[in-house]
Design a protein around this nucleic acid. Structure first.
Lengths: 253, 253
DNA sequence: ACAAATGCTGCGGGTTCCCGCAATTTCGAC
DNA sequence: GTCGAAATTGCGGGAACCCGCAGCATTTGT
């Protein structure tokens, strides 16, 4: 059995390799790379079927790397091993995991014993397993009180990038008013309206982004991914939509 | 010589203790605690004069802990040891370091040899020392093209918290128009105006926050600290400023 | 000492945002 | 097939925001 470790912190990596050697004696070869890009290349070249992946890495983060790996070989078993239990990461992982794939999510604060257990369960036996903390967060989000639907989350991303209503509407294929309704429910679910009545001087738009970040609904990685997506979308968008009132340049003057 | 280590990642902490034992044989006692609160208490009780401090920790971050430590014993020598070179951290550290205090800033990616060197220089000889990368960032910010002045940064924090112009003005003791001027220069320095002319559909206010975060001018820790400061300021603010147009309740109607 | 530069402020207008009201559509349930 | 809840859209108004213009105050350079 071959295993690929994608982790940019050398201390964590060496600790992890020790635990792997201890928990999975059937491993014959482990390769350690430092970031997502190298991880993609290594997975492609080495045909690994078991991967341990950090999420926050320099050149390409773990979610994007996992997406391309799963895109090429959907049966790869991936264990995400991260410092943080941000909702943004959970959502990112949930968005890309293929049906029937084995994966897991463990926090770096987990005990050595727990890590060994999860390593065997996910990488060897192909189960789906999550840290206790992760499960708890996931259940909390299942209640529709505070959880964001897929489309609400998309609007939140656009808001976070600084698009104004009209552009969000165009990008999501909705009417202006609907976007504003979505924003209303966002303000509600993020708790902006609750604060507003205690302190009536808030800019709800900014406050929503601020709260999304401090509650870890959004994080830096997801923001950068969204920014990249936006640039792709802009490049693909026909140019004539940019300026409906074509003012000058056609012939005269 | 006694030394205090404040670090919540156990792997990093044990690595650090190894390096300390190697680099500073004159150390007679090292105490390791897991977060800022414990760090403050330990520094108070143990009268340490040398501290190695992580920045990103669970209960209280390194900057706040360092502030109270320095407030109680300004001659304490503190070496900050962090994963990130965010401008927000640099600014936070620069804001609290007392005059004539010895301190340093090293990245966790620094080599073992470099860490040993800085440990001796700062904690033993009382010099001021920074990582190469940190120096570079600091020089870049010295050029007034992109760097934010103290007051501009304060306005950026208020903006990031979601205050609207009027409240920012009140909080900073400025007129409304001046706040808006500050915002203009902020938009400029954060590059919002540059993007605006390429893509004319941006909400500058949100975009400014978005860029401040993705360029690491702001980060989650500083946002939370600012939020806390805001709540303190709100509590201290006289209540009658909240509603200038007193509409009802005074006798007749 | 004078001029230039920089920072702070008020005014006014054009735009965007927030959101209540109401009409219409969609969708699941019975 | 019908009913009711939820989602989607249009309209309109008041508030907040962006920003050019112009008048003072302070600071700086010569």
């Amino acid at each position: 059995m071959k295993i690929l470790v994608v982790e940019d912190d050398q201390f964590h990596a060496s600790f992890l390799q020790g635990v792997i050697a201890e928990a999975l004696p059937e491993v014959t070869e482990t390769l350690h790379v430092q970031d997502g890009l190298q991880g993609e290349a290594a997975a492609r070249a080495g045909r690994f079927e078991a991967v341990v992946m950090d999420l926050q890495m320099a050149r390409r983060n773990g979610i994007e790397a996992a997406r391309t790996i799963w895109h090429e070989r959907p049966r790869t078993r991936i264990l995400f091993w991260s410092n943080y239990s941000d909702e943004a990461y959970l959502r990112g992982v949930a968005d890309i995991v293929p049906a029937h794939s084995a994966y897991g999510y463990v926090l770096k604060t987990a005990s050595r014993e727990r890590l060994k257990l999860v390593l065997r369960a996910v990488l060897l036996e192909g189960q789906v397993m999550m840290d206790r903390e992760i499960q708890r967060l996931r259940r909390r989000n299942a209640s529709p009180r505070h959880s964001l639907s897929q489309s609400e989350y998309a609007v939140l991303l656009d808001l976070a990038l600084g698009l104004q209503d009209r552009l969000i509407a165009e990008r999501q294929g909705l009417s202006l008013r609907t976007v504003q309704n979505r924003l209303l429910t966002l303000y509600d679910k993020l708790g902006v309206n609750g604060e507003e009545q205690a302190l009536p001087g808030l800019n709800k738009r900014v406050r929503a982004l601020s709260r999304a970040i401090s509650t870890r609904t959004l994080n830096l990685e997801m923001l950068e991914t969204a920014q990249h997506d936006l640039e792709c979308w802009l490049a693909a968008r026909p140019a004539d939509e940019k300026a409906p009132p074509t003012q000058r340049g056609d012939g005269a003057l």
